[in-house]
Design a protein around this nucleic acid. Sequence first.
DNA 1: AGCTAACGTGACGGGGGCGTCAACTTCGAT
DNA 2: ATCGAAGTTGACGCCCCCGTCACGTTAGCT
Lengths: 200, 200
Amino acid sequence: MSGAAEAGKRERTKQANRAAILHAARDAFVELGYGATTVRDIVRRTALASGTFYNYFPDKEAVFRALVDETARAAAERTHHARRSATTLEEFLGLGFRVYFELLLADRATFELVRRNAGTVRAMFDEPAIGAGVDLLADDLRAAIGSGLLPDHDARMMASAMAGATFELAVRMLEDDAPDVERAVGFCTRLFAGGLARLG
Amino acid sequence: MSGAAEAGKRERTKQANRAAILHAARDAFVELGYGATTVRDIVRRTALASGTFYNYFPDKEAVFRALVDETARAAAERTHHARRSATTLEEFLGLGFRVYFELLLADRATFELVRRNAGTVRAMFDEPAIGAGVDLLADDLRAAIGSGLLPDHDARMMASAMAGATFELAVRMLEDDAPDVERAVGFCTRLFAGGLARLG
DNA sequence: AGCTAACGTGACGGGGGCGTCAACTTCGAT
DNA sequence: ATCGAAGTTGACGCCCCCGTCACGTTAGCT
């Protein structure tokens, strides 16, 4: 009846349960904060029994890692890819910012997760994953310096400043009733186009 | 023997106990994160009994609020005051940044508290107190716009970007063995002097 | 249809936190 | 020196969480 040649029921249930746990965990972490959330808080937002949780994850930390890892990887990859085609500084900045803001807008739930648990993210992944891939951004900046798009300054500082400013602006943007990505992108692009050039 | 005309012993003990609790709480919040910290975790880092805690604070949230409130108030006041004397954009920026970075350097323990519990701070004080007084910064920016130091753009966005970038740079700076305030101040000042001017 | 390995279930023992309170100690006033 | 109020103590009852495991159910193979 329903659709295609899916895997067996066993496998489908497994996927569904895993997804249910991840979804419930995200909600719980956003609502209660990672530290105050218990495995029971997660399971309760699910139709499953408490024992089942442990068939999928060893503890709540593993769920948190799975949640953050996946998103961070995707975000870093996509902004990195977007910047590849840039030939001017404005393009480099604008393309990266646009992808970043659009990702956040498309997956607000995960954004809330990071926002509410920024300290935990930082403590757990020692990389300051707040910007989800600041190191990759720094690499991109170094490449841009190499090809003359940017003055030769500390790329890590540039990356930190950009990530911090961008994250904070995203918070503001998503608080609005009608988030305006173009406005945010334009602001960031002009701010950093002017600012980074001034460093030289 | 020891010094001046202090208040009675009763009063002195009270102050000492309160201070001990605040100190212990700060350590616990940094180490375990706010959510995972229990009142017992706080008391245990103290020579006091568990019941005594409740003579000073109703619960751990009250301690956290006391900790953050005090620092945020002081930081906002001092940066605000520093900026009052500025007559150029570079001065306005440089003075503010310097005070901010020096405060963080002087009270690293509280900085760690905010860094580790940024999400909680945001959730508890709905103001994004990550920058400890972004609203006040926005006010200062509006004043600067009024006196022609800055182009007339959304002061909230400017303030968010500045606070975010600055906080993230502070994290980097304090990770260094020999934190260089002047370097950080110079970087921020040039970045935003160039960037904010470009908005016009 | 019959069988079995895989999986879901929820009760259980052990651990620990919460906020209280009756008993005790100590300050400081008389 | 005496005494009462202020403050400290830690054990207590209640509650909830943790991770496990013996038991039931079911998918999917033959």
